[in-house]
Design a protein around this nucleic acid. Structure first.
Lengths: 207, 207, 207, 207
DNA sequence: TATGAATGAGGGTTCATTCAT
DNA sequence: CATGAATGAACCCTCATTCAT
């Protein structure tokens, strides 16, 4: 907008991906126009094609980028924490999930994947492999450590995946997709974590 | 395919809605073509407009229909059961949710709503009011009854909504959207229900 | 132009092909716009796609149509004539070729093929097989008959193809592509035919 | 590819024209991209515009260059030869035409002109004036000389143009555009020349 | 000179919607 | 009611051309 032919080559792809995430999330893949993405990124439609060869590729790289960023954060931290205090680690995972959902930049990608998975099987498979599987594996591993340390009961992995991630996912949807407002996010996160933990903790309090 | 133009007119709208649900679920709203929906319903594109005035209206009536059907089933039964045995009622709600998810005809509509909610705020609001709110109210009511009967602990409604519906929703997505296979569905449903119940039951077993 | 939604289904494809031939010939394949073809055919751009699935297919069917029409006319007549009087048959072939070139509807297709052959190898191959080969075969056969009857000398097929068709093709190009005007077409055709015949006739006039 | 930006600037226009000829011939004017021409010439798209102000001008200069080169070779030689031995001169013209056609660099330009003439009337006119007319004039002059020397019959110029150039042109098209293979090019050229000559020679052989 | 990022107009194609039959 | 031909707006993508560096 400033001058006619700006040149900011190095930053362009990221800027375009950011713009694309915003537009895709708001309108879905099919209803998003390259024009709008380009404008939001500060250039014109034709220029987007200098960086991404099609709308579809733009979409896929968007998800890929998110996947890469996400994996690093997640699995490592959880692994480290689990060794010290599994219960606290699980509590943190749940609370962090709930809290992060408040950031649209983080929750946008998963919602986009959910919305478009049916039309992009390859992308869904990639997301499943790079994000979902990694997250699930981290949780299962966390529970195993806790079980060995005598903190957690034995729970089937398929149960754990659903019971632990489910509330977080639902929170994202209720909050962003359906606009339910929350007053005290921190307290809610705490309460959810504690509630879920009941299903995994060995009841030492007996006796 | 057998005979053309030989169906009872009165059944047409339902047939079109069925066809639309199938196509919308598979491809999403934007990528679905009226041609395909019409063909699946056994008539031609132009004829669909005799029953629905636009693609968008077709979509909205689809969700409306689902909402009506679903509401009846849910709220009533839960209410009745809660009076007798709140714990068993909650267990049933969860198990039923997991089991029903296996039927694509039932899980298709919610997934479709999740996918398209961003583009159809009105529809999302309607779904929220007619389905989500009703379901949440039923659960909250169920928990209150249980609390009064001394069976359940006091749990914040926002926590309960997430912890109870979350695993079911996640199960739907993992199963249909990401294709994770389950071996013993019934056992899984049982285990999930029991796990969730831990967070709500008063620990009578103490002492 | 008359009413808004005319319906002339049966004639449409032919009309479109006619319009396409005119536009393609005038501007070449790439520079021809579907808009213009449609307008010339009396409908709108989108409607063309009801009959031809792409610009390329439209082009190919155009050539296919010409090929089919042409083959019938050519080979049969020549075969019949050759049996009676080979020399007269050859003279007629040449003269007819020159005379037909004056009709743009006939000369347009070959010129279009020449112009676009490089970009459409499949189409070129098809044209070669359906038109060129057939024409060449007819000539070679004609010469053989003449040879057996003692009217024609033995001439290599590759020589005959070039010497007989060359002047006709060149006449088409000079006339249409480069706009050279001819005063007395009939006389010209006669003279060309006689000139060419010299190369094939056995010189009975000797002695 | 070895060093960048290391060529003599003075050679650039020629290099670009060479590249353009290759690309235009292969794909036609409209389907040729400046990118591809530039790459083939060893520079980038933008740089081509330092030498030619538009794609169209590039195309026209291409044809102009060819015209100039060609005219020199042709007319002079033929004129000289005609004075000595008109029959041998005509034979040589025909044979040379056939033989030269084997060189794609030589036959490319005429084919390109044929393909694009419809879209570039100015270029076609220029080509007609600079190449076709010159060639035709040379032939007509040759025949006149032969006629005066008692070697050739009187033949109308319009007939001669078609009968002499036609086989050569047709040979180019059959060979390059339609890919017909020739085994013994020299023999073919000889035979074609002799065949054509029949139409022009005075039949001295008649006693 | 040379680059290559950026532009912007243009065209092929799709598809929801309309309408004469 | 039903058809399907026709429309026309929209949108993706291409590419000749420009311009700051």
């Amino acid at each position: 907008m400033t001058k006619k032919n700006q040149r900011r080559p190095s930053a362009r792809p990221e800027e375009i991906l950011d713009a694309a995430l915003a537009v895709f999330t708001a309108k879905g893949f099919a209803a998003s126009r390259m024009d709008e993405i380009a404008e939001k990124a500060g250039l014109t439609k034709g220029s987007v094609y200098l960086y991404f060869k099609s709308k579809e590729q733009l979409f896929e790289e968007l998800i890929t980028r998110f996947s890469k960023n996400f994996v690093g954060v997640m699995a490592e931290r959880v692994g480290v924490m689990a060794e010290k205090d599994p219960e606290e680690a699980l509590r943190t995972v749940i609370k962090t999930g709930i809290m992060m959902a408040a950031d649209p930049a983080i929750s946008a990608a998963p919602r986009l994947v959910l919305a478009e998975a049916a039309r992009f099987p390859d992308m869904a498979a990639m997301y499943h492999k790079k994000v979902i599987s990694v997250g699930q594996a981290a949780i299962v591993s966390l529970l195993q450590v806790g079980e060995q340390k005598g903190v957690f009961r034995a729970v089937q992995p398929d149960v754990a995946k659903r019971v632990i991630f489910g509330p977080v996912l639902t929170h994202i949807l209720l909050t962003h997709t359906f606009g339910q407002k929350i007053q005290d996010l921190e307290t809610l996160a705490d309460s959810i974590a504690e509630n879920i933990l009941c299903g995994f903790r060995i009841k030492k309090d007996i006796s």
